[in-house]
Design a protein around this nucleic acid. Structure first.
Lengths: 121, 121
DNA sequence: CCGTATCCTGCACGATACTG
DNA sequence: CAGTATCGTGCAGGATACGG
């Protein structure tokens, strides 16, 4: 198999990467997932616990995560009506991914800092 | 340990995520890594094989990847001078991550399509 | 309390031309 | 061949105010 062929095969597989990155990347995405996972279930509680996030942005994030089945939105029919957000069990499938991303990041920062030291002094 | 404590711990760990995502996300990043890994070692060969990428953007991508030790830039001192880009061995540490991202994306697309079918009809 | 509506800003990325 | 320079654009995200 030629390098060219390998390359074309790889390019064809970009879609799954983008599908994943569309969900886990972005300035607020992981923070929202983490907040809900940590028990922040109400809109204003999430907002309070994620510094600087605006309601517009939070609303958009929640809708995307709901559309992708990562979280669910529950409306209690009592009075007053309460809306709660929860992680879906499906969110657990993200765990290995999230761990892999974190671990690589931790290792990478050490590597780059070490490389800077070696070069700088 | 309270939920609040868990949450604070999680927020403290956002940096490694961002470190990783800064490197693997973006419109062109993975395509450049893949192209070089597939044997495209010259600037214009990479450019030719990544449709629509401009030299300005490719230049920026290459510098970032080099600064992060994912690739290296080799200047041959013969005539004419040739510049080649290669993946560093360190790039291999990205493989498990890249596989995890691709696999989750593939599975996720099936899930969402299935969910749409179940809802839509 | 749980959002929407408007308007605005910044930055990643794009088009095109040019240089050693 | 391997980039830089300039100018332009689109979209994520931000500020602020308001609505059910």
């Amino acid at each position: 198999m030629s390098d060219e062929k390998i390359f074309k095969d790889c390019l064809k597989t970009l879609q799954p990467f983008n599908d994943t990155l569309d969900i886990i990347s972005g300035k607020w995405r992981l923070q929202v997932i983490i907040a809900i996972g940590a028990g922040c279930n109400r809109f204003n509680i999430i907002q309070t616990n994620i510094p600087k996030i605006t309601p517009k942005v939070l609303s958009k994030e929640l809708k995307l995560l709901e559309a992708n089945k990562i979280i669910r939105r529950e409306i209690s029919t009592g009075y007053p009506v309460k809306i709660n957000y929860y992680l879906e069990p499906y969110a657990d499938t993200l765990t290995p991914l999230i761990n892999a991303i974190r671990d690589w990041g931790l290792n990478h920062r050490s590597k780059i800092i070490k490389a800077m030291k070696d070069t700088g002094g």
